[in-house]
């Protein structure tokens, strides 16, 4: 992925504003892993005006529930989970200041609108690459909610973690546009 754009969190508005759908990115640095259960707890904290377990301003949230680390590894298999699980919470996290989330699959319109409003992006990693993406995670630790097991809030140090921009801060949707393009191409063929 020589044409990929490097992202090093924490991200600023300017880092995000120039990203457009279909762009390939590689992420280097610290990102945070969270799924449904951790999101629910974090949104409850925000609703009560309390601080999150970690400062996520400018942060990248990775929707993942990894397998346990076998001996000698930082983490087990660690591919993206289906993002619609987090649609109920994502607008609140973007409003707070999260600049990017990584998952797989469609987002709902409320999430797409919140990306425009709060200048943020939704990235997709390739679903199914559990073993491959595990290799991009060089260090992993649970920083909150250990009782949730795999659904805890994780901190990951990543190197060259590959992703694609699926929804950008202009409100565009790579899935929608891609399907339109290919429906035309295949109809012609």
């Amino acid at each position: 992925m020589s044409d990929a754009i490097e992202l090093r969190p924490p991200l600023k508005d300017a880092d995000v504003a120039s990203l457009k759908i279909g762009d390939r990115v590689v992420i280097r640095g610290t990102i945070y892993g969270a799924r449904d259960a951790a999101h629910k707890k974090m949104v409850e904290l925000l609703d009560h005006g309390q601080p999150l377990p970690v400062d996520l301003h400018g942060g990248i949230l990775y929707y993942v529930g990894p397998t346990p680390a076998p001996p000698g590894r930082a983490i087990g298999a660690a591919g993206p989970t289906t993002s619609l699980r987090m649609d109920a919470y994502a607008p609140r996290m973007y409003e707070y200041g999260v600049k990017a989330t990584i998952g797989k699959g469609y987002r709902n319109q409320a999430v797409i609108d919140s990306l425009v409003k709060h200048k943020a992006v939704y990235l997709i990693a390739v679903g199914g690459l559990g073993a491959t993406l595990s290799g991009c995670i060089k260090a992993a630790k649970v920083i909150a909610y250990p009782e949730l097991g795999t659904e805890a809030l994780w901190e990951f140090h990543v190197e060259d973690f590959p992703a694609i921009v699926a929804n950008d801060s202009q409100g565009r949707d790579a899935y929608k546009e891609g399907q339109e393009v290919w429906a035309k191409k295949l109809a012609v063929a």
Binding site: A77, T81, G128, L129, G130, A131
Partner: peptide, 24 residues
């Protein structure tokens, strides 16, 4: 490209004795 990545992922998983996917 993505399909080729999935093939490579399955080979890596077997080589390293890791699950192919985190959703086991």
């Amino acid at each position: 490209e993505i399909l080729s990545m999935l093939v490579a992922n399955s080979e890596l998983a077997q080589r390293e004795n890791l699950p192919m996917c985190q959703d086991t």
